[in-house]
Design a protein around this nucleic acid. Sequence first.
DNA 1: CTCGTCGATGTTAACGTTACCAGACAACAG
DNA 2: CTGTTGTCTGGTAACGTTAACATCGACGAG
Lengths: 353, 353
Amino acid sequence: MIKKQAASTHDVRSPRNDGAAARMSDVARVARVSLMTVSRVLREPDKVLDVTRERVDAAIRQTGYVHNALAGGLRSQGRTKVVAAVVPSVRNSLFAGTLQGLADALRADGLRLALGDSDYSKAEETALIRAFLSLRPSGLVVHDAIRSTALRSVLARAAIPVVEVGDLSRRPFDLAVSYSNRLAAATMTRHLLERGYRRIGFVSLSPRLTRRALERLTGFETALREAGLEPDPELIAEAQPGFAEGGRTLVELVARRARPADAVFFAGDVHGIGAILEARRQGWDVPGKVAIAAFDDVEIAPEITPALTCLRIPRYEIGFEAGRRIIARLHGDPDESTRAVDLGFRLIVRAST
Amino acid sequence: MIKKQAASTHDVRSPRNDGAAARMSDVARVARVSLMTVSRVLREPDKVLDVTRERVDAAIRQTGYVHNALAGGLRSQGRTKVVAAVVPSVRNSLFAGTLQGLADALRADGLRLALGDSDYSKAEETALIRAFLSLRPSGLVVHDAIRSTALRSVLARAAIPVVEVGDLSRRPFDLAVSYSNRLAAATMTRHLLERGYRRIGFVSLSPRLTRRALERLTGFETALREAGLEPDPELIAEAQPGFAEGGRTLVELVARRARPADAVFFAGDVHGIGAILEARRQGWDVPGKVAIAAFDDVEIAPEITPALTCLRIPRYEIGFEAGRRIIARLHGDPDESTRAVDLGFRLIVRAST
DNA sequence: CTCGTCGATGTTAACGTTACCAGACAACAG
DNA sequence: CTGTTGTCTGGTAACGTTAACATCGACGAG
C-alpha cells in the first residue's frame, strides 16, 4: 500500500521567483517550513523552536529577503513601524537636536523616523503630512501647530498620536512637548531691562512665516509694558534667514535710528552671531555701545567674542520626550495625565549683555 | 412588469464604516460611483468626466479620505512614491544642502523624501536602509558608499535606483553624483604649498568613522609627496565633532610640537571656524603665524575675521542632480551614459591663508 | 442601417503579509 | 491506556488598492 504523502503548501506549489525580490514564500520554500513560521520568526521568535528559527534565519540570509511593510502593515493594524516628523527646514540645525532626541527614543522601540521638510510653507506642510499619512505611520511629530481644520479632521480619523513640539501657547491638538516661546522671550527681555537697557530692539523672522515669531514678539512686548515701557515700532525689525541679516538689522537699529537701540534681542535664526561679528567689524563695543542677546544657544555662541547671552531650549530632551509619549500611547499606557508637557528653558547670561 | 434595477457594487453592499478612517469604498458610496472611478480620479484624473470628478472630489473632502499607500503600493509595482535618504547626521548642516536639493528635484515629480540618520554607525545605517526598503521606496540616496556585500545583494534585488552622494572615488554601486574628496583635499594642499607653507598640519574626523576622512587624508599626503615633502605624523591629528575641537587641535599642532605647523588644513566638520576663534583668543596672527584652511564653505566662513579659505562643494546641486537621475531612471529614460557624475568643487581663497 | 471605434465606467482577481483558528504531537496525570 | 494540557506548526481568509479586462452607449463611416 502506497502511503499518499500529505501535500502541504510549502512543497512545490509556490513558483520559484528568480531574479525578483524574495517574498516570504521564497524563504519558506528554502527553509522547508510554512509561510506562517517565517512570519513568526520575524515577529515573535520566541514562539518558534530554536532549530526551526535557525533554518529560517539562514534562508532569509540566503534569499536576501527584505520584509514588505506594505503587505504587513496592510494586513495588521494598518500601521507601519515608522514615525513621521515634519519640520520647517532641515537646513536649520536647531530642529536637528529635537530630531536626534526623537530618533533615539524611537529606536528603543524598533520605530524609525521618517523626516520631511516643509520649507516654511503651510501648503507644503499639509501636502507632506498627507503623503506621510498615506504610509500609515505609527505616529506624527510636527514642529508647527496643527491649525487648518481640514488637517485636524484628517488627523483625528488617522487615530495616531500626534505631538506638537514647536510651541506651547495653544491647547494642543493631541499632545505637545515643548516650551513657551512667549515666556522665554519675556524672560530675556526682563533680563535686558534688569541690566538697565531701555531702548531694546527686537529682530525676528517674519511673524507671517512662523507663528513662533509672533509668540516671541508678544512676549517681548508684554515684558516691556510690565516695566512701563511702550514698544517702539522703530526698534522692531524683520530679517531673512542667515548670519548676514543679523549684521544688517543690527546696523539698522543702532546706526539708522534717531534714537538708537542700546540693546538688541535677536529672536530667530543665527542672527545673534551675525550681529556680534558685524559689531566687531564696525568697531562697536559690545555690550558698551549695544548689548546683544539671542534666542537660541547655537553651538558657536559661547566660542565667539564676546560670548553671546541667550536662551537654552532643551531641544534634545523635547524630541526624546515626544518619542517616549508616542511609544507610551502606542502601548496603550494610561495617559500620563498631562497632554501638554512644558520642558522649559534656561537663560544663559554671557558677556554680550 | 416591474423592471428589476440592475444591482451594482456601489449600491449598498459595502458596509458604512463610521468612525474608522475612510476607505476608497466609502468615498465611492458617497459619490455614487464605483471604486475604480475613485481610484482613477486620484491617479489619472484626465480619464474621468469633469462632473464625475467633481462629485468624487467632494466626496473625498467630505469623508476626509487619505490614500492608503500600503494597499496601493502593494497592488501596483510594489513601490511607494517616496525616496529614502540616509545621511550620517542630520545635526550636520552640510548634508542639509544636499537634502534640500534632493527634495526640490523630487517634488517636481510628486515624490517625497523620507530621511534617516545613521549617527555615523555602519550597523545603524544598514538597519535603517533595510527599514526603509521594507517600505518599498522608489529610490534610495545614501551619503556613504554601499560597502557590505549583504547590503549590496539586498539592494540589487530591490531593483531601485540607488545614488551615492558622499564621494566619487570608488566605482559606484549603481549611480553616483558627487565630487572627489581626494582631489579636493589635494587641491587645497597644493594651494597651501604654493603660498609657501611647508609644515602643513592636517586635522579631520577619525578615518575609522567615515571613509571620506581617509580619502581626504590620502589627497593631502599625495599632494605633499608630489611637492617632494614627506607627511609628518606629528602634524596629523584627529578631532571629535564640534567647534571647540578645532581650537584644541590648532593649539596642539602649533604650540605643542617641537617643529610647529605653519598652516593647518581642517578637513572635517566646523573645525576651521573653531580654529580661527581660538587663534584670536591666543593672539596669534592668521595667516602670519599660522594659516588656516577648511574643507567646507560653511555659512559663517566669509563673515568671520579673518575670512576662512575653503573648498566649496556644490551640495545643493549634488542633491538636485541625484533627484533628477532617480526620476529619469524611474521614467525609464535611457541612461544618461555616465553612471558617475562629478560635479566638482571650487577653491575659495580668503584672508586666512 | 450596421458595424467598428472610442471614451467613460464597472467587475474581478490579484499584490504579500498576518490574525485567527485548527491540527499534530509530546508529556504527563489518573 | 486514556484524557488533558501545552507547544509548535500549518491552512485560510482577509487587509484596501489597482492592472487588466469587460461593458455600455454614442457617434461616424461606409
